[in-house]
Write a protein that binds this DNA or RNA. Structure first.
Lengths: 231, 231
DNA sequence: CGCGAGCTTGACGTTGTTCAACTAGAGTGG
DNA sequence: CCACTCTAGTTGAACAACGTCAAGCTCGCG
């Protein structure tokens, strides 16, 4: 096994998953004891919307998408996740149901921690609860930006937002392999696959991005940001 | 002063604001001591997006809107609030900034509690923290529905959602005074004012709703729900 | 070499916005 | 009591944005 074999422990995840640092040693041990790790092939579903929440997931390798399954088989991607992300979901203390699905984009591995251990820590460890609250609030702010992007910007602005998001948050580079499909890009920006393709081409023709063999390179960040800001 | 004069106490709010029930008596006293109440005229701003969070608000009378100020002077209304709502905001533990604005739709009163008292209780009272977490998660789930409504449904579906929302959550009746303006209805459904008006007229012509002098009555809930579901 | 999934393109139709004009009703001052 | 104004609401026509459909393309893979 590579960097995250079955013999890894929650202590190791500390470096990556920030809110774990508020757990006590005993809690980390409890987390580690209840934990199991699973491998997923690209395309496989990790969490399915509408099913019960039994575990929270710490994503350990690969790339995955978190998306809401909406109407007419249309999905809305909320976020792309990379190793180090901890995914519970808003149903945790409410109805214990998944309100989104998560599926692997590339081959991935994920660690699962019993939801009851998580809840135990929330109840016994205020710092951890507060850290979780803070985390959820940050997510909330992100969602606000997404609301504005999706409802008030037109396609150029939304694609610009997506390209910047992938560059800044996911790949940490202004030149990266697209990895996600055109359909995913469309689901991320709430438009049709064809429209997403057209805007990409438009950006390419305008020398805002370079695009070959799915390798994207941002040539003109300023123009991209302007598209994002104009709307 | 009417039902909520300056001489009311936080204990009275217990009946209305559910998460207050997890506060201890001492905490309620502390909340009550730091508290002050303010009257607002229709249209006045209660919280302004982009300013510092100094207090959380318990809305005590009237009707108000929570909205994000987006691009080109367009607003997106996240929710309408009525007495009993407790409004903090996702910035609370993150950057201490308001990420939305709140303004009074009708003449209103609101109670303000020092943010530090609130944070103190979060830190000292796990049950309260968990209850807050649960509340925020519920909000999160609502937002997911809003995402789907706004990005995947067309205008009829969105207006239907808004009418149902006002009926079920705000006025608790299928016959109510619209109170909110057409512009507000448009901001709630992410469309232009003109489009909102046209859909209302369409619903009226189709005998789905009755509408005179801003008094709306739902005549055919089934059709309304079908519009909401078809998208 | 051929198959199939994902990608691309163009033509066309629909949805929703914009603009401008008009209306109704609620104050406001003479 | 009557203009006058101001704001919210309404309507229609023109237009832009976006989705749909259908066809063709590319490229990896068996």
């Amino acid at each position: 096994m590579t960097q995250n074999g079955d013999n890894c422990s929650c202590q190791e995840c500390l470096r990556k998953t920030s809110i774990f640092e508020y757990l006590t040693d005993e809690e980390l041990v409890a987390f580690n004891d209840s934990r199991y790790q699973t491998k997923y092939k690209a395309g496989e579903i990790i969490f399915k919307q509408g099913t019960a929440i039994t575990h929270i997931m710490s994503f350990t390798s690969g790339l995955a998408k978190v998306y809401i399954e909406g109407y007419n088989n249309r999905d809305l991607i909320l976020q792309i996740i990379k190793p180090g992300s901890l995914i519970g979901g808003p149903g945790v203390l409410v109805d214990n149901m998944h309100h989104f699905s998560v599926s692997a984009i590339t081959d991935s591995t994920a660690c699962f921690i019993d939801i009851n251990e998580y809840k135990k820590s929330l109840n016994n460890n205020t710092e951890f609860a507060i850290a979780s609250l803070k985390e959820i609030n940050s997510q909330h702010i992100e969602n606000f930006n997404k609301f504005i992007s999706l409802t008030q910007k037109q396609m150029q602005g939304r694609i610009a937002d997506a390209i910047i998001y992938l560059s800044d948050e996911i790949f940490n580079s202004n030149s990266y392999d697209m990895t996600i499909s055109r359909q995913d890009l469309a689901d991320l920006t709430a438009m049709s696959k064809e429209s997403a393709i057209r805007i990409l081409k438009e950006f390419k023709d305008d020398k805002i991005i370079q695009l070959n063999h799915n390798k994207i390179e941002i040539l003109n960040v300023d123009k991209l940001r302007r598209f994002s800001e104009i709307g």
